[in-house]
Amino acid sequence: MSFSFIGAAHAAGAPAQGGMFPPFDASTFASQLFWLAVTFGLLYVLMSRVALPRIGGIIADRRAKIESDLRDAAAAQKAAEDAAKAFEAGLSQAKANAQGIAQSAREAASKQADTRRHAVEADLAAKLAVAETAIVEMKGKAMANVAAIAEDAAAAIVERLSGAAPAAADVAKAITASAKK
């Protein structure tokens, strides 16, 4: 070894015990290099062949899994949004339907009420007309009776005052004349 100049004198006898600074003791170099080559070589081979590809694979798998999960989540969210949109559309459709139904029901009800009111009004008008004719009739009769009563009353008054009963024709003439005034 190139380091033999440091420890050549001491290398022969007592290993590392004879005042020699151990890291510079060239007698141990061969053994250190040999076992370093064995252990580090083994470490390198196992890391490059087994450990690092395995860890790289684990990390890549995880990344792929996370990405696919995120994609699935995005698709699920899209589906949920579509469903919400469809629900909204159905809801507004149903609202419009309900309004239409309420509108037509209201119209039908008011039409029915109108027809019934018209029928009742017509009925009432007919009754009114009948009553009016009856009143007119009765009024005419009553008026005819009034003249007769007036003649009787006038004849009675005149008889009481004058003591003589007037002629019926004269009384009737006088009544009609005073009624005309």
């Binding site: 007698s27 141990t28 061969a30 053994s31 250190q32 040999f34 076992w35 370093l36 064995v38 252990t39 580090f40 083994l42 470490l43």
Partner: peptide, 17 residues
């Protein structure tokens, strides 16, 4: 002729490994 003894240094290399 080379001293390749398994030493305490070698032991700790193996432990590190």
């Amino acid at each position: 002729g080379l001293d390749l003894s398994f030493t305490n240094a070698s032991l700790f290399m193996v432990i590190v490994l």
